[in-house]
């Protein structure tokens, strides 16, 4: 703790998320789920006056496909906010997206537990 006369550090995020979204309605998750993969369209050009967040997305997505969740984590923003920005870019035609890779086949919980148990008896 700091002394009474000392200036304490403020550590909260400087620019609040509702300012980044401009108070707009957040999109639903249907279009861009957490593991939808996005990348820049080949001939996309950074829009003029792009916000720092959009620039960052631009740089993140320039290198290949990245999941929505990853974009959000890299930006350090809530998924919903990243999703709004991505939706904007998508609607402007700057982004390509593809569905998430198919899930690994789900094994029922019992089997997994058995395997885990077996491993634990063997190695644990």
């Amino acid at each position: 703790m700091t002394r009474p006369d000392e200036e304490a550090a403020v550590t909260g995020h400087f620019v609040r998320s509702y300012v980044i979204t401009g108070g707009r309605r957040l999109p639903e998750a249907d279009e861009l789920s957490l593991h939808t993969l996005v990348t820049l369209a080949p001939d996309a050009e950074l829009p003029l006056g792009a916000s720092p967040e959009v620039r960052e997305i631009w740089e993140l997505c320039a290198g290949g496909y990245l999941a929505v969740a990853e974009v959000s984590a890299h930006l350090g923003l809530p998924v919903g906010v990243a999703r709004l920005l991505l939706t904007d870019l998508f609607e402007q035609g700057h982004l390509l997206r593809r569905a998430a890779p198919p899930r690994a086949q789900l094994v029922d919980r019992e089997t997994i537990e058995k395997v885990l148990h077996g491993l634990q008896t063997r190695y644990g």
């Binding site: 909260g12 609040r16 998320s17 309605r25 998750a29 923003l77 809530p78 998924v79 919903g80």
Partner: peptide, 21 residues
């Protein structure tokens, strides 16, 4: 901040958290 990241995937909760924020 934490809550926003935690519930960031749910647009309704996130919108409410933004109001609180």
């Amino acid at each position: 901040d934490k809550a926003q990241r935690k519930y960031g995937d749910d647009s309704e909760i996130l919108a409410d958290l933004m109001l609180v924020d």
